[in-house]
């Protein structure tokens, strides 16, 4: 590890620990657990879009697949450790196949966005039709628009009798997010990550250097899906029910908005965007004067107009300014081309 890497890791762990321990003093841990799951979901899109330049309009599909896999496998297996692993692997495998088809088929960015959107819509529509008793996977009934309730929630590995819920679930989820964050940081520092960023910057040039763009994008896409799947499993164990709305258009749109508002091309931005906006939605959900999708849209428009780079880069700038301009400004990555304008 180089000095800079060690400093970054230490900073992430210290800040992460402070947030994990400090936030429960102001926000209820039940709500926080949901914010953690959404934060991880945002991180997954932030990775492939903000760093890899792959705009996926259907990240919710992998989130939903993770949640459903966790539920279905849980019912069939009776404990949660293997289902948790499957909730990561199934979306990743699905993304590997879908990604290979799209990237090897040389689809343009717009078609990619449309196809991922359509895939999640198909899953959404199809799951809504699975109300009948014919739709079962093993012992699990898919349950149509009511979804699947009553599956085993998270337990201590090897101890199906020791369930993790409530406050302990919050800490388990938050620490998991911190670990995933560190893994993503490591990935971005690795050659694979650096080349992925190169592809975001200029696909043609990276191909001219002799790198197989299609294979690399496919792998990155699958990594994003794996993280989204894990987020889905966390969501499932928190909600104790999974429904087709996980795959909904609104869910996919929200993830994109989280990333834009938080700051694309940063690691922390999408998590921050998810936490702030999901909390806002939760707070607004307590009243019925204003429609909360309206507020979300308004926030998005305001950000695109006035803070197009998102919250995180501005915070970094503020931090650099506060600690004195003699020090090097915080490292900021410019957002991928085209993102800053909308």
């Amino acid at each position: 590890m180089t000095g800079a890497t060690r400093r970054d890791t230490a900073l992430v762990v210290i800040l992460g620990a402070a947030l994990i321990l400090g936030l429960p003093l102001v926000i209820d841990t039940h709500v926080l657990t949901l914010l953690v799951a959404y934060g991880m979901l945002a991180l997954s899109l932030g990775l492939i879009w903000g760093f890899g330049g792959v705009l996926c309009f259907g990240q919710a599909a992998f989130f939903g697949l993770g949640a459903y896999t966790f539920a279905i496998a849980g019912i069939n297996i009776g404990e949660s450790t293997l289902p948790l692993i499957l909730a990561v692997l199934v979306p990743a495998g699905f993304a590997l196949v879908l990604g290979a088809m799209m990237f090897y088929g040389r689809l343009g960015d717009v078609y990619l966005a449309v196809i991922t959107l359509v895939v999640s819509l198909i899953l959404f529509r199809w799951l809504n039709t699975t109300a009948g008793p014919a739709y079962v996977i093993g012992n699990a009934r898919l349950g149509g628009f009511n979804g699947i309730p009553g599956f085993p929630i998270l337990n201590v590995p090897g101890r199906p009798d020791l369930m993790i819920w409530g406050e302990p679930l919050y800490y388990a989820a938050a620490v998991t997010l911190l670990v995933v964050f560190l893994l993503v940081s490591w990935l971005l520092r690795s050659s694979f990550g650096r080349i992925a960023i190169g592809i975001r910057e200029n696909e043609e040039r990276v191909a001219l250097l002799g790198y197989d763009i299609r294979a690399r994008k496919t792998v990155l896409f699958a990594i994003g899906a794996a993280i989204a799947g894990l987020a889905g499993a966390l969501y499932a164990t928190w909600a104790e029910v999974v429904t087709p709305t996980l795959f909904s258009l609104q869910q996919s749109a929200e993830i994109i908005i989280w990333c834009i508002v938080g700051g694309l091309g940063t690691r922390f931005g999408p998590i921050l965007g998810a936490a702030v906006l999901a909390y806002l939605k939760f707070a607004l959900g307590q009243q019925s004067v204003i429609d909360n999708m309206f507020i979300l849209g308004l926030v998005l428009v305001l950000f695109v107009l006035f803070l197009p780079r998102g919250i995180a880069p501005e915070l970094a700038r503020l931090g650099a300014w506060a600690t004195g301009s003699r020090r090097r400004p915080a490292r900021r990555r410019p957002p991928p081309a085209g993102v800053a304008d909308g």
């Binding site: 960023i197 190169g198 975001r200 990276v206 990555r333």
Partner: peptide
Amino acid sequence: PSVMDGLSVHENIWMA
């Protein structure tokens, strides 16, 4: 010029 605009000179050449 086909280069990676957001990345440094060093990063561009390193990747090659």
